[in-house]
Simulated scan of single mutants.
Amino acid sequence: MPITATHVNLYHVCHRELWLHANEVRMEHTSDTVSEGKLIHETAYPQRAERYREIVLDGVKIDFYDPKAKVVHEIKKSNKAEAAHLAQIKYYLYILEQNGIEGATGILEYPTLRITETVTLTPTDRSEMVKWLTNITVILNSLTCPPLLHAPICKRCSYYDFCYVGE
């Protein structure tokens, strides 16, 4: 199974959600938060679909890529999982590099917060990426679901009812 940017994002949020998602247990369709995020993604920059391209490399889909400036644009609803968002963009940049596109950068955008952040891929990021990908592969290949996280973020998660059904 190819590792996607969603896998990298979820790895930085919750290993259990990563495993469930990879094993086709999907709860996003029940989440108002996910729906709001999709709406923001689709409406925040309506002209973007005309100006930028969607590309797929090695099974990784980048929604908004500016090939002239070599910039990946990623839109998120909230910065509560910012580390995961940054990891996702860095993975995009890593995949671009692996496919011969050097010097690409990313822009992480939180339209409702009016925050943008430029993202680059550093040598440290590249070595961390190898660790992330190894750990993600271990989780994806595991026969058992990782344990509950028991973190504040769980209360807003689309898998909350699934994970805490017995409690």
Rank of each mutant, 00 (worst) to 15 (best):
M1K: 10
M1L: 00
I3G: 03
A5R: 11
H7K: 03
Y11G: 09
C14N: 08
H15Y: 03
L20W: 00
H21C: 00
A22H: 11
E24Q: 15
E28K: 05
E28H: 02
E28Q: 07
T30L: 15
S35D: 08
S35R: 14
E36A: 15
K38Y: 14
L39A: 14
I40F: 09
H41V: 00
P46E: 09
P46T: 09
Q47F: 11
A49E: 13
A49N: 03
E50P: 01
E54L: 05
D58F: 08
K61L: 12
Y65W: 09
P67G: 05
K68P: 00
K68V: 11
A69Y: 03
A69C: 01
K70I: 01
K76A: 01
N79D: 13
K80N: 13
A81C: 09
E82S: 13
A84K: 07
L86V: 15
Q88M: 14
K90D: 08
K90S: 05
Y92Q: 06
L93Q: 08
Y94S: 12
I95M: 13
Q98G: 07
G103F: 09
T105F: 01
G106Y: 04
L108D: 02
E109C: 08
Y110G: 02
P111C: 10
P111V: 01
P111Y: 14
T112Y: 03
T116F: 07
T116K: 13
T116N: 06
V119H: 12
T122S: 13
T122L: 09
T124H: 03
T124R: 12
R126V: 13
R126N: 10
S127Y: 09
K131P: 05
W132N: 13
W132F: 11
W132S: 10
N135Q: 14
N135C: 07
I139T: 13
S142T: 04
S142K: 08
S142M: 04
L143I: 01
C145D: 02
L149M: 10
H150L: 06
A151K: 11
A151L: 06
A151V: 09
C154W: 09
C154N: 11
R156K: 14
D161V: 07
Y164F: 14
